[in-house]
Simulated assay, not measured.
Amino acid sequence: MSDFLQEDDFFKKIDKYLNKEMDAEEIKAFEEQLMVDKTLYEAFKLESDMRKMYEDEEWKIGNRSVLKTEKATQLKSFYSSGEATKLRNTISAVISEEKKRNKRRLFLKSIAVAASIAFAVSVSYTLFYNNPNYNDLYNTYFESEAGSLPSFVNRGSDVEDLLTKGQFLFEEKNYKEAIKIFGVYQETSEEKANVLSYIYNGLSYLELKDFAKAEDQFLLLEKSNTLQSKKSQWLLALVYLKEGKEKQLIQTLKRITKTPTNYNYTKARYLLEKLEK
């Protein structure tokens, strides 16, 4: 841990710098520390970002003791995610309401509570979603699935040509265009759609982080009751892994590991063991 972080006036120094209350010597010392102290720099960036988000005094006077050490980085990641929008709105609503009531002491307490709630949620979210080990696993599993997909090439009809074009776009990682092609194909084919299009399309949505549509494609695959449909639970697990939905991921992995003959049973068991440690 940084020696700088061990000081009781940790946030006061950051505030003093951002408020332009340091003299030239203090500024030089602080900026030199920023260049060599990664943890301090990340906390400084968090403070700067939060000031941009709340452009008045509320954030400055709030209780930020919960933001020390590496948790500051976790919270910064959370606030940059879409999941934080509702929390930010809630905090803003609390601030607005307490201003109207003009109860300064209760106002300060409310800010501290709101920040603590945000932090508690953020830790549970970022500890899982931003874990580099899980990101690496997702990338490995995705490449494995993408690389083993059957080909549409040389099937000999206009419809299959459409699928071939979609496949080429997918292989080039042009997922937006691949989605357009597979979408047209599925609309024209309706119930007779080649179930592989659900996999290609679902994986394309997944890479673009359109999780709801990726899940829809894999649920269509599951309902097809074909040989390929056996992959649906594992593909849904990949959605939850990338999306950071730990609860749904664990539930899905448990369904897969109930039967050793299920698709990717070994991978599912390995991932489940890592999550339940």
Rank of each mutant, 00 (worst) to 15 (best):
E273Q: 07
S96M: 12
V153E: 15
Q167E: 14
I14E: 05
Y175W: 08
G156K: 13
L238P: 01
E172S: 10
A84N: 06
E273T: 06
S229W: 09
E187G: 01
R51I: 10
K52W: 03
K38S: 14
K180I: 01
L87D: 13
E55F: 08
K28Y: 09
T226G: 12
F152S: 04
S204K: 00
E222R: 08
K242A: 01
T164S: 12
R104S: 13
Y263K: 01
A214H: 01
A29Q: 13
K12W: 08
L162C: 05
L67A: 04
L236E: 04
Y263Q: 01
E83H: 04
L18G: 07
T126E: 11
T188Y: 15
Y263A: 02
Y41G: 03
R104D: 13
A115L: 11
Q33T: 09
K180G: 00
K68I: 07
E172M: 05
I179D: 00
L162R: 04
Y134C: 03
T259L: 15
K86D: 11
F152R: 05
S116H: 15
G147M: 10
S122A: 15
N19Y: 12
E222N: 11
A120K: 05
V121N: 13
L169C: 03
T164E: 14
E207S: 09
F78S: 01
E222W: 02
I181M: 13
I14N: 09
V66F: 14
K103P: 05
G82N: 10
F182I: 07
T164Q: 09
K231E: 10
N133S: 13
L5F: 15
N225Q: 12
K13N: 11
L67W: 07
K20E: 15
Q217I: 00
L75S: 02
E191F: 15
K38V: 15
L40G: 07
N139R: 08
Y129R: 06
L196M: 15
L271P: 01
K209T: 00
E243Q: 12
A93G: 10
L272D: 07
E26N: 11
Q251C: 01
D210I: 00
K16M: 12
L235A: 02
N135W: 02
Q6G: 08
Q217S: 11
S197E: 12
W59P: 05
L253H: 03
T39P: 03
K20T: 06
P132T: 13
F30P: 12
L236K: 13
N154C: 04
